[in-house]
Simulated scan of single mutants.
Amino acid sequence: MASSIADGINAWKAAVNGKQNSRIVGLFDKGDAFRYVIPDYAQTCQQLHVYLGIVEDPDPTKERINFYVIPAEYDTPAHAADYQLYTKVCPLEKNLGSNRIPNKEAKQRIANWDKNYGTFIPAQNATTDGLFLAFVVDREDFETLDTYVNLALKSNGQAVVAFTAELIVTNLIDSKDVYDDFSFPVPPYGASATASSFYLLNL
């Protein structure tokens, strides 16, 4: 499993670095979200790192995106031999329950992705930072065990690329949906998310 995770992440990196924008856009035609059920080992973590990977579809003539979710404390060289034990594989899928997020702003950001990912991806990939290789998500976003995580675009007021990518976590609580969006893409890296803290990008 470790090699398949590394292969998927490296295939995503190669597509981003190779500016294979039409290929990437085509992959997102298949979905806009992933399902995440919090495992026991992630219950007390502070942050989760979410990586993207390109993998072979069950139909060998096709490919798809997987998300790899790992607590930040396991995303280190110290866990080079066992990181796969702490990495949950989440296939890209359609979140068909578009009414699941009651907040108007959350709905708008998710709609922004669905409407604009085809133009956002090549525009963002042409910038100095390039397209996202991973996301950082605060563990506190996951208020229930059962969640959907949607790709979203937040308006940033900039002229060249008008959106910033993010992940919005939808929590089902007592038959209501509550959203959280404490997430950000990397790159760009920063003081709280240095390049060295994303071990899986170096596999």
Rank of each mutant, 00 (worst) to 15 (best):
I110D: 09
I110H: 05
I110C: 11
A111T: 05
A111S: 07
W113R: 02
W113V: 01
W113D: 03
K115T: 15
K115I: 13
N116K: 06
Y117F: 09
G118V: 06
F120K: 02
I121Y: 03
I121S: 02
P122R: 01
P122Y: 09
P122E: 07
Q124T: 10
Q124F: 13
N125I: 00
T127A: 08
T127R: 08
T128D: 13
D129H: 10
D129C: 14
G130Y: 06
L131Y: 11
F132M: 11
L133Q: 12
L133C: 08
A134K: 02
F135H: 03
F135I: 03
V136I: 15
V137F: 03
V137D: 02
R139I: 08
R139Y: 05
R139Q: 10
E140F: 15
E140M: 15
E140A: 15
D141Q: 11
D141C: 14
D141H: 07
D141N: 15
F142W: 06
E143R: 15
E143A: 13
E143D: 06
T144F: 09
Y148N: 12
N150R: 06
L151P: 04
L151W: 01
L151A: 12
A152F: 02
A152H: 04
L153P: 02
K154T: 13
N156P: 07
N156V: 02
